[in-house]
Design a protein around this nucleic acid. Sequence first.
DNA 1: GAAGTTAATGTTATATTATAACATTGTTGT
DNA 2: ACAACAATGTTATAATATAACATTAACTTC
Lengths: 169, 169
Amino acid sequence: MKSKKDEIGSLAVTFREHDHAKCASLLLDAARDLCAERGLRLTPVREKVLKLLLKSHAPLGAYDILAELSTSGFRAQPPVAYRALDFLVENGLAHRIEKINAFVACSQPHAKHSPIFMICNDCEQVAETSIKSQGSSLDRTARAIGFDIRHTVVEVEGLCAACRERAPL
Amino acid sequence: MKSKKDEIGSLAVTFREHDHAKCASLLLDAARDLCAERGLRLTPVREKVLKLLLKSHAPLGAYDILAELSTSGFRAQPPVAYRALDFLVENGLAHRIEKINAFVACSQPHAKHSPIFMICNDCEQVAETSIKSQGSSLDRTARAIGFDIRHTVVEVEGLCAACRERAPL
DNA sequence: GAAGTTAATGTTATATTATAACATTGTTGT
DNA sequence: ACAACAATGTTATAATATAACATTAACTTC
Ligand SMILES: [Zn+2]
Ligand SMILES: [Zn+2]
Ligand SMILES: [Zn+2]
Ligand SMILES: [Zn+2]
């Protein structure tokens, strides 16, 4: 049984001081492992896009990525970015954040999960946590009306603790 | 204390047989009342857009609305639609559904609420229900990490009961 | 390893969604 | 009537995303 502290630590490292270089490199390794296991090809563009997303916990728009790709010797037509992002999203290595039309690296790529995002409107970082869908209020309501859930979007906007301290209110 | 049946009836009428003409007219009246109470101006374009949204429980894109406006003698430049939609959304008469870049009339315009949408991928109708934010898992996680929630997006995609019956699996 | 097959990338063009900026008109309060 | 503000009209463009088709690379299977 995990302690509450563990839970917070593992789920919302984004808004806490942490060794992000390590954070990013562990996730990159995890992605490589996952692709190897599943016979997926983490091609140069795909890996590059993942690395760009892993640079920070702030999401990037498709055109931000495109711009960075073009300064790194990759082709820079929109489909290049969207295809790589599609691959990453379809395979659980990244998520799309609907509210802001942007993408983040997944912070728990192996586990099958329904992510929840907390988007700080000030520092623009995004923390990923997870829904426990079994028995949730959402799940119960859906069952009650016979709705079969295929995909869930949960995104909250607000201010992270650090930003609230910096600029109270 | 409401019964479970009441709760379902009031919250997810979308996917059930119902007198939608009545449904729409009650909501239009509610909107007029609400604007009168708050000193808001439900101008012709704004009312027309609300009526368009109230035609069904299927959401409309801004450009769908624009097209309908132009066939009704209104000006049809994008800002016309977006401004009316902004007004309706800001004042709680409509909601934007992020996942599909579209808008629906709010089904409970008086109550302050955090809506949840259930989007049927087959019939494309959307049911609105509500989060009980107090004490929810989301709320607890946010508190635990000191995140101050300003706005919540909860949208689920899947199949409604009727569509599942029509086309099993 | 040559030929066939599928997956991935390259490239051009265009579709879709949304906003900036500024001019004009209408409404409200004095 | 006048000022002040709210709403609408209008032009232009920004930002996001996909369609379609050509080319190249990778993986089979013989
Ligand atoms: Zn990190
Ligand atoms: Zn922050
Ligand atoms: Zn109805
Ligand atoms: Zn349906």
